[in-house]
Each structure stands twice: as C-alpha cells, then as structure tokens.
Write a protein that binds this DNA or RNA. Structure first.
Lengths: 188, 188
DNA sequence: GCACAAAGCTATTTGCAATAGCTTAAAAGC
DNA sequence: GCTTTTAAGCTATTGCAAATAGCTTTGTGC
C-alpha cells in the first residue's frame, strides 16, 4: 500500500475543505480520513484527536484573519484604518461563512491559543493606537470593536439576519457607529 | 415501577439545569434521562430526539429573554429604553452564561423558531420606534443593536475577554456607541 | 544492505442516539 | 367497581463515530 505522505498540516487542510463544503458539523475524523485517502485511525499519527484538530483549525482561521486584517489596515490610520479593518473582518466571513463558525470562542484564555489570539488583537490595538488610545481605554475600545464586528459576523455566518434588506448598508451603519463612538483624545 | 410523570416541559427543565451546571456540551439524552430518573429511550415519549430537545431549549431561552427585555424597556423610551434593553440582555448572560451559548443561531430563518424570534425582535423594534425609526432604517438599526449586544454577550459567555479590565465599563462604552450612533429623525 | 523510526493498517472497545417491540400504570367508559 | 384502552415506561438491539491496541510496511540513515 502506497504511503499517503500526510502531515498534520495536510490534515488541517482537509478539515478546512470539509468545513467549507459541508459546514462545521461535517468535521468528523471519518470524513477527514476519507478525504485524505487514509483509514481513520491513521490520522492519530498526525493529530492527537478531534479536539486537537478543531484547535488547529481554529488557529489557522485566526492566522488567516490576522493576515487579512493586517493587510487591510496597512498604510491607513484612524477612521480609515478602523473602517478598513472592519470591512476586512466581514469580508472573511462572506468568503468563508462556515469557517467563521469554528473561530475559537476564547482565544485569549486557552493557553494554546493565546499567542495567536494576541497577535490578532494586536492588529486592532495598533489601529486604536492611531487615536492615541492607550492602557485601559484602549482595552475597552478594543472590546467594543471586537464585540460589534464579531456579533455581526457570527449572525451573518449563521444566516441569522432574516429580512431582505441589504447587509452592506447595515454594516456600514455599524462601522459608522463604532468609528464615531471611539474615544478621541486631542490630536497633538 | 412507579411512573415518573414526565412532560416535555420537565424534560426541557432538566436539560436547562444540566446546561447551567455543566455547560452546553453536557446536554446528552443519557444525562437528561439520569437526571429525570428514567431510561434514555423513555425520553422519546416526550421529545422526538436530541435535535428537537435543543430546539425546545432554544425556544425557552428566547422566551425568557423576551420577557426580561420587555420588562426592562417597559415605561422607558429612546436612549433610556435602549440602554435598559442592552443592560438587560447582558444581565441574562451574566446570570446564565451557559444558557446563552444555546441561543439559536438563526431564529428568523428556522420556521419553528421564527414566531418566537420575531417576538424578541419586536421588543427591539418597539424601542426603535420611539426614535421615529420605521421601515428599512429600523431594520438596519435593529441589526446593529443586535450585532453589538450579541457580540459582547457571546464573547463574555464564552469567557473570551482576556484581560482584567472591568467588563461593565466596556459595556457602558458599547451602549454609548450604539445610543449615539442611532439615526435620529427630528422630534416633532 | 541493514536497522529502526514513523506511517499506515485491521480489529476492538466504548459511548451515545435511535428504533423495535413488550409491559404495565392510570384514566375513561360502562 | 370492573373493564378497556391509551400512553408511559421498560429492555434489547442497531448503527455510528472516536479512540486504543497492536501488527505490518515503508523509507531513511548508517
């Protein structure tokens, strides 16, 4: 029997493809094994089990988002940067609706996620530093931005907005809310 | 063997107690059966299966929240009502953190949830009507409010806010953002 | 060319949801 | 007050997916 040449990265790839195609509920070891052309127990040579696979998938999603958000904020500052960041966040959800559902719940608590989660949070903090926000005020503002953006994204990813009104319009209103609601220390 | 005298309501009660005590992951038919003093297959006399039980639990959570939110908004209007509504929403999460995690993803899409979901949405719409908001603008504003409030609540319920800063302060900032960002037609 | 680590396999166990089909408690009718 | 019937409960069984144990094979390094 020829060797499949799997790596844990390839297992995560297959898991993501599965999630994209059939939703988070389709992520089973049996399905991943079938897709990678291997028997289910063989996966344990690369991952410790389903919980770890979920964690690895979550890490990949966070990394991808960090890259996108960083690119969007790059070269902009203040309101421009905030709006670009928020639009990039949602665009990830629009591009990969199922993937967003496996975004880890508490990346800042779980020790195995805290590094990656912090890196993502740093992108937000960097944008807010453009307003001169530091310390506690920056934390509160980050939480507000995160809550608004994640709330919209998670509802949209779940298909939870019922009525037919344009979602872009709603989101632009949310962006305006956040932007105008950020504390504004005097510009020197 | 004495009869347990179960009803579907009692099954949902047991499910909620389990979720409160051990988290959403602990909701299994086996556990519910043990708690109600009945063999697992007996539960099927009252519920169609685990998916239905989850749905019933979700409905109860939505109903409870609707009651709380309605009571909070009662007798207030405009900014007062909006702030009270938002505080009541979060207070539910603080009181029942695990329960919030089983709040249905898309209550406005699923035909079996749409009535209850609409009733909840009506509470928000009623508050926004106090600003003279109608039609599309009311929909967009409702989505923003919902996104902000649900985003904060779901992150907090999952224990996802890492740093030690005071959460009440963060939330008051979010309330201020939303309140000041709502469209304001001229008061007659 | 051989030794050994790693990648793969089959077989098995465990936990839970779900179905089938039987038994008996309790309420409704006479 | 006895019978009839409905529905609440049971045990036994099936099916599925994760996980573990232990064997086999492939490929690399010496």
């Amino acid at each position: 029997m020829p060797r499949a040449g799997l790596t844990s990265g390839a297992v995560v790839d297959a898991a993501l493809a599965l999630i994209d195609e059939e939703g988070p509920g389709a992520l089973t070891l049996a399905a991943v094994a079938a897709r990678t052309g291997v028997a289910a127990p063989s996966l344990y040579k690369h991952i410790r089990g389903l919980p770890e696979l979920r964690k690895l998938v979550g890490l990949r999603v966070m990394d991808d988002m960090t890259e996108r958000l960083g690119a969007a904020a790059m070269g902009r500052s203040r309101d421009e940067a905030t709006a670009a960041l928020m639009r990039a966040w949602r665009s990830y959800v629009v591009d990969f609706p199922h993937r967003y559902a496996v975004f880890p719940d508490n990346p800042l608590i779980d020790p195995e996620l805290v590094d990656t989660g912090t890196r993502l949070m740093e992108v937000i903090l960097a944008v807010l530093r453009g307003y001169g926000l530091e310390g506690a005020e920056a934390i509160h503002a980050t939480r507000c931005l995160r809550a608004a953006v994640h709330g919209f994204a998670s509802v949209e990813a779940a298909g939870g907005f019922g009525l037919g009104e344009n979602l872009d319009t709603s989101y632009e209103m949310l962006i305006a809310m956040v932007v105008s609601g950020l504390p504004r220390p005097p510009t020197p």
